[in-house]
């Protein structure tokens, strides 16, 4: 598809050199489209945050290129970079660390408006702040004058979403946005992200280790292991008919109240797990297409 807002094209990122080289990302390709979400799923250390950081221009890829609306990043001019910064916004994992404790919520939302939307001036600024808070279902009268410590984790994450929306982005990169929230508020935040995606036609890169929530927000899914995307395709397809052994392993380990640990039929054998990990970690260029749009690396 060429209508991608943001695309990674066979991007590789390595850290260190010589014998201690770490391949954090190997030949990663994916694209983000308006009104669609891609879930990047994998365990800690699989390279998903490295991908997010490259998408955010925080890391330079070692090889490969990142395309913004079809144009490569390499050699982009200052005004293009500024446009990019407005167009791609991020929501961080930790709702406690990502807001400045010394400033009010209103301040957090005014800043991106002043920076990215200079045509909004004077009394319009506070009106837009109110609008943004209403959008994320927070009461502006109550929340705008407050400081971050006066809000709950879920409320703070909503403020983070509002702050990302303030720049009128086209793509939002959300790195584990609910993993630090209480179970009872997780769904609310996921629903909100889903609504934003549809209403504002946003492209969403949803990074998570929880494959069950991926189904909830994302049309497409990519499963990462050891720096490689091992399987990708439409979310329902991949979850219901996984091909790659690592995807199967990941799915079988998701807590499922219908599967008791006592049951020998569903026991995960540690030696099998080790074998799958070893096989999945080896670089593999060959890819098989299981059904239209559903791909996996062969083993």
């Amino acid at each position: 598809m060429n209508d991608a807002i943001l695309a990674l094209d066979t991007v590789t990122k390595t850290f260190g050199h010589g014998a201690s080289t770490v391949h954090a990302a190997r030949a990663i390709s994916f694209s983000l489209h308006a009104g669609r979400a891609l879930a990047l799923v994998g365990e800690s250390g699989s390279g998903k945050t490295t991908c997010a950081r490259m998408a955010m221009r925080e890391y330079q890829p070692t090889t490969g290129q990142i395309l913004h609306k079809g144009r490569p990043f390499e050699g982009a001019k200052a005004d293009e970079i500024a446009r990019y910064r407005r167009s791609v916004q991020m929501i961080f994992q930790d709702p406690f660390a990502s807001l400045n404790p010394a400033h009010t919520i209103a301040h957090h939302l005014r800043r991106p408006l002043k920076l990215h939307r200079p045509n909004i001036r004077g009394s319009q600024i506070d009106a837009t702040v109110r609008e943004l808070l209403q959008r994320v279902k927070l009461d502006p009268d109550l929340v705008a004058p407050k400081y971050p410590h006066e809000l709950s984790g879920g409320q703070r994450q909503r403020v983070n979403i509002a702050r990302a929306l303030a720049a009128q982005p086209e793509v939002i990169v959300a790195d584990e946005p609910t993993s630090m929230l209480d179970v009872s508020v997780r769904l609310g935040v996921l629903n909100l992200l889903n609504d934003m995606k549809k209403e504002m036609n946003l492209g969403l890169l949803y990074i998570t280790h929880d494959i069950a929530t991926a189904r909830y927000v994302a049309e497409d899914i990519a499963v990462m292991y050891s720096g490689q995307i091992v399987e990708w395709g439409p979310t329902g397809e991949v979850i219901d008919n996984p091909i790659h052994p690592y995807t199967r392993l990941l799915l079988s380990a998701v807590p499922d109240p219908d599967v008791r640990f006592d049951d020998p039929r569903t026991r995960l054998r540690p030696e099998d797990v080790d074998d799958i990990r070893k096989a999945a970690a080896a670089p593999q260029e060959k890819v098989v297409e299981a059904s239209p749009g559903h791909f996996a690396r062969s083993l």
Partner: peptide
């Protein structure tokens, strides 16, 4: 509490 968990095999998007 049960209702607040997204189910792996439950309703699709």
């Amino acid at each position: 509490l049960w209702a607040s968990f997204p189910s792996l095999h439950g309703g699709l998007l």
